[in-house]
Nucleic acid binder design. Structure first.
Lengths: 197, 197
DNA sequence: CAAGATTCCAACCTGGACGTTGGAGATTCA
DNA sequence: TGAATCTCCAACGTCCAGGTTGGAATCTTG
């Protein structure tokens, strides 16, 4: 039988993403990842290095997917509500990313690939600042802080689901509940960032 | 020398809070907690049961402290900006609580003490709903979702510090940076919840 | 004071996780 | 074809964490 190393790598990384998402870096074992992929543990070390580097690889890949999806789907800043709703949608469909980000933050220290990611966010901030200058967005809030808060608006639901459940009495599982939450995010983003006549 | 069991308990719980905050349930070892407290590991099991119950004890205690502090310091809803700023202040001074909450959420499953906490939040939601009816607050957003978003507004900075650093270019460490962030939270809360004439 | 209960600790047991290794099957290329 | 290389895996070594136990020191109670 022929080798298929790309497929082996892909399956391992997929399994790693699943396990890290579910249990975090400390709660995940390399053995479980390998078992989930149906591949021997030694392949993990050979392809990805140790556990820490595997986690970084997974996180970078997921961030890449978000950036691509937003680049393809997000509307312009003149529709800041839908812009934020689009971020919400991504997180709703890929809840693993927020969890990975939270584990990264809780681990402390420098972020994975921090310099490149910071540069990426700085470009976003620059477009927000521009939109504030030309009146597309309300200029009441500092642009960087506005970007940060809008991300939070969309991601907070997925960051503390137990709190969302206790406060709203709903676990957000049904499509209807999700749409209500999304509508709320859209409205809130408009309140925060739309120009006030 | 006389025993001081209350002090022993207190030191163990304090050490457990420190370790759980820093490393999370999976990253924390019972041995390190005991070592940090300068007390034998066996006392942990005798006083608090196993690791899971110790974590729950710590989390419940920290939530209690937040509730007490807010009850004493938070202004009325007619000043929703300062109300939210007060939550921000608590988290800034006690960054361990958000971290504990995030670990709880990431662990999945039912929240610690979920029923009682849900009831507590429901009372808060009821006061928000009342304030919306009498015009103290804008009634554009569902009251439960508004409460949830305001909590997020205040806590998001401490939930993903690495993201805050990359987006804003500041780690929020100095008092001045913290005050700028607080001011932004206050303004944002007003945008979200103050009545629009 | 003496017997029993309580607090405390050093040492231990057991299981499991990280990371490695020796070698077997598959592939490539001279 | 056959030697070198690459992919893969079962089994292992080592370390460490969760949780327990036997017994010493201290307190309490009659």
């Amino acid at each position: 039988m022929a080798w298929d190393t790309q497929e082996t790598r892909r399956r391992l990384q997929q399994a790693a993403c699943t396990e890290f998402t579910a249990h975090g870096p400390d709660g995940t074992t390399m053995e479980r990842i390998a078992a989930l992929a149906g591949i021997n543990k030694e392949r993990l070390y050979n392809y990805f290095g140790d556990k820490r580097r595997l986690f970084e690889t997974v996180l970078i890949a997921e961030l890449e997917k978000l950036a691509i999806s937003l680049g393809a789907n997000a509307p312009g800043l003149e529709n800041i509500g839908e812009y934020t709703g689009c971020i919400f949608d991504y997180h709703a469909e890929h809840p693993q990313l927020v969890r990975l980000l939270l584990w990264e933050g809780l681990a402390g220290g420098a972020a994975v690939n921090e310099v490149a990611r910071a540069a990426h966010y700085q470009r976003t901030v620059a477009t927000f600042a521009e939109a504030q200058r030309d009146g597309t967005l309300c200029n009441d809030l500092d642009p960087a802080k506005l970007v940060f808060l809008l991300i939070g608006l969309a991601a907070w639901w997925f960051a503390v689901p137990q709190l969302a459940r206790m406060v709203t009495g709903s676990n957000g599982g049904t499509l209807q509940q999700r749409n209500l939450r999304r509508a709320c995010v859209v409205r809130a983003a408009q309140h925060l960032a739309s120009p006030h006549p």
